[in-house]
Design a protein around this nucleic acid. Structure first.
Lengths: 331, 331
DNA sequence: TTGTATGCGTTATCAG
DNA sequence: CTGATAACGCATACAA
């Protein structure tokens, strides 16, 4: 039932080789021959066997996207844009969740290798550099997104998070919040450290004291911010503004605030990060830091494909995308 | 650099065959031999070549998930749960977006076949049954989710959408809305037809006239509801409640309402569908119809694996999951 | 319990 | 321009 090159060869009278070359649009094939073969292939509903061609050629036209949690809208949006770009280039994508867990990330990398992917786009957990070691050993092209390792050279695409942290904090200050809770991600994440740096710089620039107890570094897995915020609300509420690591973190915090009857922005001003709302008509007006998810995703695919084809202009692509403040009603 | 069975064979002194069988945990291998081989494989960092084993065995431990748009939180959540279940069973998943476009769906199916997936989980576009024909010809196991074809027998998992539609409408009526706008999906979707049926039955049950002009059937791609709602608001607002096809559709509608200064629920009551909020702490209290995304995803994987292994108890799995009303502040 | 031989469907090399 | 042949890495049937 499944059509192979052999079947097309039999039907057209050409050899398997010729059929293969014709279908690959190689140029040492007579035009007529190519047309005949293409037509017959079409008629017979030929679908190439990617396993066989991958095994033989070493290329599978497949990439893996390894991320925290595709149910998180930020990652879902990134995945969507990555898939669009990949598909345009005739590539398919595996999605593998790490759950912000180092071990699962390494497992995901192994799976990707097992599947013979040509490249990997990774939002690294950063609890260790073992993933990079794995990747480098396998000599498989990869691009990091959103997070990067200061001590290692890799391809990476990040956003200007120091600036993002600054802008967010500055805006909170400008709205009259002096006591700003930073609901940050864990400090092993480079982007968390950088946003925190921006936060500190903004406080300093406006002459506001930095209070360590207002900086919370926590795991940013689903539901964790919510639980944490419930506790914080019970214990103390010595702040009037929140700068959240991401929009999703902001949502969870606001959810908890709402349950406690605390109004945003009247009683609490909140700024998020990522501008998920640029891709989701979500009916809660969250002030946030915009990053161009589409451009980053597109660029990641572009770079990975260059690396795969050996057409890279640089040894390492290290690019930073701008961050801008989007003001909505939450602050 | 890449370790193959051959390398392990060389190192241990056994044949490739023995190594292969040992790593597969076949039982006709001496315990000592197995231990030796496993250890050496471990040491050498052996990662099996899935392309080769797939080509040879016909199984790739890979499935494809074909859905509308993974950036849509509903599909993202489903994808997440599917990936969790798949991964537990040592399966990896391709994510392919159809954009609710029949042609792209068929293309996605071809890609999946090309990659040699063992099974497909499909949220069908339903503009045609060509996808099923493709799938059946290829004899590849597949399960439909959320939507099913009345005229064709397939495996499918759906929710009780007639009941869901009824519950949603009934609730709107009970809150005093008599003129209810149904912001439905396109009628080629079985679930849209069924929700509409529930809507009509509820109106009938409560003696409210059915007004065709209050039923909008529209494409449910990103941003479309928003644009549509903007127009509707300009032209007329002869309704006091909205029953939306999905939570995402509800969000977009509410977004447009907010821009027009129309308050939910004071001036407009809204009920959504899917209960995305069960997996996302987003701070807008949307009344909705709950469906168990986790159970459905888990079951889909379970069924697809049974089919792949030839262990299915039924020729067709046709299962319906319950729908329940979740009341929050939007209605 | 282990080894030998074969083939999965394709691409690549080389000869004609 | 086309065809024969080998090889990719593994799993399987069969022999030992």
């Amino acid at each position: 039932m499944k059509i192979r090159l052999k079947d097309i060869a039999l039907k057209t009278g050409f050899s398997i080789n010729t059929v293969s070359r014709a279908l690959q649009n190689k140029d040492d094939i007579a035009k007529e021959t190519r047309v005949t073969i293409l037509n017959v292939a079409q008629e017979m509903g030929y679908i190439p066997n990617g396993l066989a061609s991958g095994l033989r050629s070493g290329l599978t036209r497949t990439i893996a996207v390894i991320l925290s949690d595709v149910a998180n809208p930020f990652f879902a949006i990134m995945t969507r844009f990555i898939e669009i770009s990949a598909r345009k280039n005739n590539y398919a994508v595996f999605v593998l969740n790490s759950g912000e867990n180092q071990e699962l990330e390494e497992q995901a990398i192994s799976i990707a290798m097992n599947k013979g992917v040509d490249g990997i786009i990774l939002f690294p957990v950063q609890e260790s550099n073992r993933s990079l070691i794995l990747l480098n050993q396998a000599k498989i092209p990869y691009v990091l997104i959103g997070r990067h390792f200061e001590e290692e050279r890799t391809d990476y695409l990040i956003t200007d998070d120091v600036n993002g942290g600054f802008l967010a904090t500055e805006h909170l200050l400008s709205k009259g919040s002096k006591q700003i809770l930073l609901l940050n991600g864990p400090s092993h994440l480079s982007c968390a450290r950088e946003r925190e740096e921006g936060y500190r710089r903004a406080l300093a620039a406006y002459g506001v004291d930095y209070k360590p107890e207002l900086v919370i570094r926590h795991e940013i897995t689903h539901g964790n911010t919510y639980s944490l915020m419930k506790q914080i609300i019970l214990n103390r509420c010595d702040f009037t503004g929140i700068f959240a690591f991401s929009d999703v973190v902001a949502w969870e915090a606001i959810y908890a605030l709402q349950e406690a009857g605390i109004q945003v922005p009247e009683q609490m001003k909140v700024v998020g990060y990522d501008n998920i709302q640029s891709q989701l008509y979500y009916p809660f007006p969250l002030t946030t830091i915009h990053i161009s998810k589409e451009n980053i995703a597109h660029r990641a695919v572009e770079i990975i494909l260059k690396k795969i084809k050996g057409e890279a202009e640089h040894e390492y692509y290290e690019e930073m995308f701008e961050t801008t403040l989007i003001v909505r009603a939450s602050c």
